[in-house]
Design a protein around this nucleic acid. Structure first.
Lengths: 155, 155
DNA sequence: ATATTTGCAAAAGGTTTGCAAGACG
DNA sequence: CGTCTTGCAAACCTTTTGCAAATAT
């Protein structure tokens, strides 16, 4: 678990100053189970630090991205720079299409598939993007088997 | 191969009018091997139809998306609504990080992985997002083994 | 003490909307 | 012809930038 304290230590350890604004952003991000847009982060941060400027949130998010402390979640529409809590090396996401909750998993063994695709396409494959989406247990129980946003859609 | 004629027939078949502007957009999209932003499509379309408005391009792209005649490619930064040529049922992309070319593949057997992830996470998985990226043969030959944007980075 | 960081205002993109004029079928 | 489509202008939203004031270390 990546607490905001750990994040704070990393920030300070890299020589950046820890302002109340930055602490507030860290807390919001570390605490959230779902992915957040810059605007959503701004709204939440404002509740515990009313004076903060949206610009500061953006700059903090940029810093976190530079330090590789955040990662992106891909949503169906546009995939704007939705952020979320911390990664730790190679991993992927499972996103709940109902509540937005994100859970991680590692060990995506795509080597066989990658090999086949590489041979057929002639590409030298250097990376991949993989994400599952569906309904988390909680949302399934709350709304019945299907759930409100059940689409089965693949991006 | 999805030619612009075929696309045109689909459009007309669905009861939409085929204007010269729409034809021009179709031609540009059908012809392109790489993924294009709305702005890039606008620029290209303008060369053969100078008077066209950017708004018209946006509206045409929306129509194509509604008819499921386009699909999105996910790039490292932001994944704005980059469009590209046509899909045909379930498939995935391999994108060249150097020239942007996109090639499709089908038969992504993720069932085993999906099963494992589903059990561990408690999610009911309904879809997935998978994309490989790397260097196409042409770019590899042109620039040496590595290539200009070689990163190995995973989103 | 000093280099960083903040916040305002304004700029800069990208995308959408209202509406009158124009064109496909 | 009637309805759908276009293109302009303007509105909107999100993200970035310039700069003086505030602040963490």
């Amino acid at each position: 678990m990546m607490t905001s304290e750990k994040l704070a230590n990393i920030i300070r350890g890299r020589g950046y100053k820890l302002t109340p604004q930055r602490r507030a952003v860290l807390r919001v991000i570390a605490r959230s189970r779902d992915h957040l847009t810059p605007g959503a982060i701004y709204e939440r941060v404002r509740k515990e630090h009313p004076g903060i400027g949206l610009v500061t949130v953006y700059r903090m998010l940029e810093l976190l991205a530079d330090l590789n402390l955040t990662c992106r979640v891909h949503t169906e529409d546009g995939c704007r720079s939705y952020l979320m809590r911390r990664p730790s090396g190679h991993h992927h996401h499972i996103m709940c299409t109902s509540c937005g909750r994100v859970v991680d998993f590692t060990k995506c063994d795509l080597s066989e598939l990658q090999q086949r695709v590489s041979e057929k396409s002639g590409f030298k494959i250097e990376g991949h993007l993989l994400q599952f989406n569906g309904l988390c247990q909680e949302c399934r129980e709350k709304t019945g088997a299907g759930g409100p946003f059940r689409t089965g859609k693949v991006w």
